[in-house]
Amino acid sequence: MDQVIQFAVSVLSLGGTYALLALGLAIVFSLLGFLNFAHGDLMTICGYGLYFLLLTGVPFLVAVPIAIALAGLAAVLMERIAFRPLRGRSPMSLLITSFAVSLALHVCFQIFISPKSKPVPIPNFLSGYFTFGDIYVSKAQIIAIVISVAALLLLNALLTRTRMGIALRASATDFDVARIMGINANKVIMIAFALSGILAGIAAVIWIAQRGAVYPAMGLTPMIKALIAVIIGGLSSPKGALYGGFLLGLLESTFLFVLPDEFVLYRDAAVLIALISFLMLRPNGIVARNAEPMR
């Protein structure tokens, strides 16, 4: 029984984190048609923001929202500096650009901060275990679930209830028509990047709370998995990103429980192979844009 609960908690906490990342990627994709390879570096930026804020003595609960906002700001700047000059070019050039931006940021972290891992002190209320009878569940994992579910609900409300969210969804459906209807393209794209940055920031806080350190390549591994989660889910709708994220969480937790410790090195490889094999069966993802099978 306790194994089942621990497994479920692990699935939900991992899945929630990946879903946040995947959603951020999907929001930008829905407008500009490319997956932002520098998305993981937004996580890293948030991590370093948290590190420096805590270093200067800002209390944890104050530092977290500032660090998350920093990630949102970084995403907006990234769009303004690197992607806007290429507006209207093929998605492939934007993708390559984002790859270049990611590498450049990575090098900047190495040169100007440190190539080594920096510890982020996690307050006590986030470490340790909750006990329910004889079942132990990690506090960080429970909080991860709570935060990611809250963030997802908030995002949903934002997208369906506010003018801004509706403008965003309209633009994602058909950008050209939305612009003819008077929606400001630059503003919508800016909002999309800000949202994706904030989601990446939230994911980063969850990630760091469970690991307690930040380093230049921190965002790489979760981002790679989120990228694949988006593809698996289907690029045509944000629902896809959600499904993809949780499917990834399920897969990873399963391999974590099933694979003996000596094969732990192969866990990520096994997860990736499983995901890519899934793509072979459904090349357009779970939520395919074109529900018709190709003949």
Binding site: L35, L227, V230, I231, I276
Partner: peptide, 12 residues
């Protein structure tokens, strides 16, 4: 995009 990401998966 799916092909690019899958190839990235193979790299990892």
């Amino acid at each position: 995009t799916a092909a690019v990401i899958a190839s990235f998966g193979f790299l990892i």
